[in-house]
């Protein structure tokens, strides 16, 4: 349990909302990643998770009044951009192979 100590001064509701939103975005991203089979949508879902992560960075940065959070968002953007470039290139390649975007078309890559 998390007792709310009334002696403590009120916190920043923006941070709370930001963190909640980040958690929700991340969770929704995971759900999407797990339940969609379109490879592009799956990557979009990873982007959703990036969004969630970024929002968390900003929120914590605000809570601690530190700019590192925002700096990390820059890196996140970098990685997201790089990932988008490469992943989408791969998707296009894969699509050319099988004429489908379904991730299930690549089942046989499994070891079993």
């Amino acid at each position: 349990m998390n007792p709310i100590d009334p002696q403590l001064p009120p916190g920043d509701p923006l941070v709370m909302l930001g963190l909640l939103a980040s958690a929700i975005l991340f969770a929704v991203g995971i759900v999407g990643f797990l339940s969609r089979r379109n490879m592009i949508t799956m990557f979009l879902c990873t982007e959703l998770m990036f969004q969630g992560a970024g929002l968390a960075m900003i929120s914590y940065g605000r809570q601690h009044m530190d700019l590192s959070g925002q700096v990390f968002v820059i890196f996140i953007l970098t990685v997201a951009a790089a990932e988008a470039a490469l992943a989408l290139g791969l998707v296009v390649l894969l699509y050319r192979r099988k004429e489908t975007l379904s991730a299930e078309a690549w089942k046989e890559l499994a070891e079993s």
């Binding site: 969770a27 995971i30 759900v31 797990l34 089979r37 379109n38």
Partner: peptide, 16 residues
Amino acid sequence: YDRIAREPAAAVLCGF
């Protein structure tokens, strides 16, 4: 593959 969500239950469980 766009119309149907696969294993939504497991996914939602994990996510939430």
